[in-house]
Amino acid sequence: MRKGSRVSSNIIMTLVIVWLLIPLLATIIYSLFEDWTGIIPHGFTLANYQKIFTDTAFLTSMYQTLIVCVIPIVITILVVLLGLFVVTVYFPRLEKYMQILCMIPYTIQGVILSVSILILYAKGSTILSGRMTMLIGAYCIIILPHIYNGIRNGMRAVNMNMLLEAAEMLGESKLKAFFKVIVPNILTGITVSSLLAVGLLFGDYVIIRNLSSSNVNNMQKFLYQAMKRSSAEASAVFVVIMLITFAITAIVLTLQSRSTLEKIRNEGK
């Protein structure tokens, strides 16, 4: 009876996985062959990949994706770290308000966010109405809750005030002590949450389409344009995006399991 249900659940799992993987596989095959009109594709070729990787527009879009991902993440990490430092050390009573503030973006959708930002800032001529500024600002907002949670959870694991006081008694200033004895302990948490944020920003199409000018393209935007030109080329772009996403996920999972292992080892002692 139990064995039977194991078998049937395995079958269901397999079916689901196949169901999910078929489009992926199809896309990969499609991008690797010249012709797939019959049942068996033929004419293996890397031409599509060659084409996109020699296309400066694609390379630029990769580069720009990187830029518009990394800058907001770095900014948000710094802001959250300093914010949490000040709140924990000097204004512990404000902590819950900080938490609420940082959680609000969870409830905001990309379309609403980008449109509101446009309405609010686009007409002015300050630095805030620059396209790049608006985009990076919007991305900072989108990833804020994730970065906040990652850092906050890491900080909970160490007795921050105590460690800071200990460092202070040894002659260190509080802020330096924060970066020397607190941040290293939450580095895994920071890395994981920033990779998650990369994943999030990497998949964005809505906000960048609304906010960026035509000369800022991320890979999603490039994909969209490629689809209009050639479906084989678009498949290749899609596969590249997929691989990058897989890589990020793999790194996150490894880091998470490693930090869990560390925790278990430490507690076991």
Binding site: E165, A166, A167, M169, L170, G171, E172, V181
Partner: peptide, 20 residues
């Protein structure tokens, strides 16, 4: 400020830096 007083302290709870 504490760091200029030349005072050493051992706390009630464990306060070693875990990353070192």
């Amino acid at each position: 400020v504490p760091r200029r007083r030349g005072i050493g302290m051992v706390f009630q709870q464990y306060s070693l830096f875990p990353n070192m």
